[in-house]
Amino acid sequence: MTVITTTKDVQNLTLTLVAEFDATPDRVWEVWEDPRKLERWWGPPTFPATFTRHDFVVGGESRYFMTGPAGETPRGWWRIDAIDKPRRLDFANGLAGDDGEPTPDVEPMSGHVTFEAIDSGTRMTAVTHFIDTMQMQTFLDMGMQDGMTQAIGQIDTLLSPAQV
C-alpha cells in the first residue's frame, strides 16, 4: 500500500512529500529517468506532460509541455543538478516560453528527491523549495492548479508550535 505524507513549511516556502511505494528503489528511480514513464505522472490528469528532451545526467536539461483541457500547452524545463542513482536526485524546474526555452525572469523551483530502501519497498522524499510567491503563483497560473482543491482546512495543524 502506498503511504503518502506531506509537510508544508510556510516559513521556508518548502513542501516535503514522503511516499512509500511497494517497489524497489531502482523501479521508483525509473519513473524519473524514463521520460515515457515520467510523462505519465508529472502533469495532473487534466494537464498531461510530454517530454521532448530528457538528458538525465548532471548538468543535463529537459524540455516539456503540458496539454490542458482547452488545448493550451504551457511549457517547462528541468536542469539536473545532482544524480546518485538510485538514491538521490536534485533538479531545477522552471517555466519556458512558447519557443520551449527557459523564461529568464522567473527563477526555477528546486527539487531534492531521495530514495531509500525500506522493508516494504522504497521511501521517496521529494522536497520542493520556492523562492518567493511570484514564482509560486506563476507556476500555478501555468494551469497546474486546475482541478486541485485548496488545503486550507489544515491551518490548525500548520500553526502548531512544532511547525512554526
Binding site: 503518502i4 512529500l17 505519465r40 505522472w41 521517496m124 486541485m148 488545503a151
Partner: peptide
C-alpha cells in the same frame, strides 16, 4: 491564507505520488 499557495503544490505532489504508484 499564506499557506494556501503551498497547499496547492501539496495537492499537486500528492496527485503525482498517486500516479507514480499506479505506474509501479
Amino acid at each position: 491564507k499564506a499557506v494556501t499557495l503551498l497547499g496547492n503544490y501539496e495537492q499537486l505532489w500528492i496527485q503525482r505520488a498517486k500516479q507514480i504508484a499506479d505506474i509501479l
